[in-house]
Simulated assay, not measured.
Amino acid sequence: MTTSLGAVRSTFAPWDDPALAPLVVYDGVTKRYGAETAVADLSLAIYEREFFALLGPSGCGKSTLMRLLAGFETPSAGRVLLAGEDLAGVPPHRRPVNMMFQSYALFPHMTVERNIAFGLTMEGLPREEIRERVAAMLKLVKLEAYANRRPHQLSGGQRQRVALARALAKRPKVLLLDEPLGALDRKLREETQFELIALQERLGVTFVIVTHDQDEAMTMATRIAVMDKGRVVQVAPPPVIYEAPATRYVASFIGDINLIEAKVAAAAGPGAVAVETEIAGRLSVETDEALAAGQQVAVAWRPEKTRILRAGEEAPAGWATIAGTVHDIGYLGDWTTYVVVAGGLRLRAAVANAARLVERPVTWDEPVRLAVAPSSFVLLAR
């Protein structure tokens, strides 16, 4: 019996255990289409029972990686391994992998029940076993009452669950999800994200999801691989990706970020460096990187870690301040975003609306100062 990950999700980190072998390995994989390189000398490891996200913009190579694992594409160089076995030459239907397509690819003339049973029937499983598996899948996705309906009689969310049930019915070691929530409206998409998390934890199957939606990846994944131009730029759990991005690209791609140019002034003690900026003066920023004096870097911080100070308000001791003028205000319900122009840069501060809005405390064209705690800064050398 598979133990649920629900109670231990926060401590689930097999990638930190040197005794554990990964389930999926991309070993120096390159994929070319003529003169175009979709994936460039990429190595990546995915562990059993992970909910792993391949995240990046269109054309970055994430779908190609998924298709290489599914067997729909073959590497131009390198190897793809599953449970230690080189998959070279293994056709898609012989791999313990199943794929849920973005379009769902349901058969319109078949009932829900027959759609789920299709792959099992093609494998030639005994009729009774097919019936039992289909019944279990219908119960799993809560569609027992819809077994005899056809796809056009279902909502978008129901069709998505049918496609998921069909993919899981074959009991794959790895389930591949290609933009699985793209056709759903926002509210249903958010609900389905948590349903998928619960389902994956309950089944213990390794899920690999391809998405360009940062919120989707941050919500569901145990780890995220951020991709750019056929390469993996950073692989880490969502909190690390968000709080400690490795590059400017990752920092800008994941959520909103403020970023100012700086120059390394001098070392400022163990694990920190002093940098000079035009609009915030000299800052001391934590870093583990070895940096040379005069080196050009960037200092970044998140809008929600920014405090707005009006005239007469003082910043907490040790905080950096940046003077500017409120240029724009966006009320988002739970948050209000302020765009402040400072030294020609547009910086953002996000303020939680913790109380009912009676009057807006900060208004357009108002001179303000942005205050940021030193611990909120991230130094980006790349």
Rank of each mutant, 00 (worst) to 15 (best):
G156Q: 08
I257N: 05
L176D: 01
N98W: 04
N258Q: 09
Q102E: 14
R127Y: 02
P237S: 13
V378I: 12
E261N: 13
P239E: 14
R9E: 15
N98Y: 06
F194C: 00
L203F: 07
V226L: 15
V208M: 10
A21I: 05
M218K: 01
E190A: 12
I130F: 01
A77C: 12
A342Y: 01
R248T: 13
A246H: 02
D328G: 00
A292Y: 01
P180L: 09
L196N: 00
I329M: 10
K305W: 10
E132A: 15
L20Q: 15
A217H: 05
L176K: 04
G312N: 08
E123G: 12
V24K: 05
D213I: 08
I224Y: 05
A198E: 14
L23E: 15
L177A: 07
G89M: 08
A7Q: 15
A268Q: 00
Y33L: 13
L380S: 03
S4F: 07
R307S: 08
A267R: 14
E132Y: 01
R186Y: 08
F194N: 12
Q214L: 09
D27P: 02
A352H: 12
W301C: 06
I116M: 03
T222I: 04
P92R: 08
M220T: 01
N115V: 03
A105R: 08
T306M: 05
A167Q: 03
L332N: 03
A117R: 00
M137W: 01
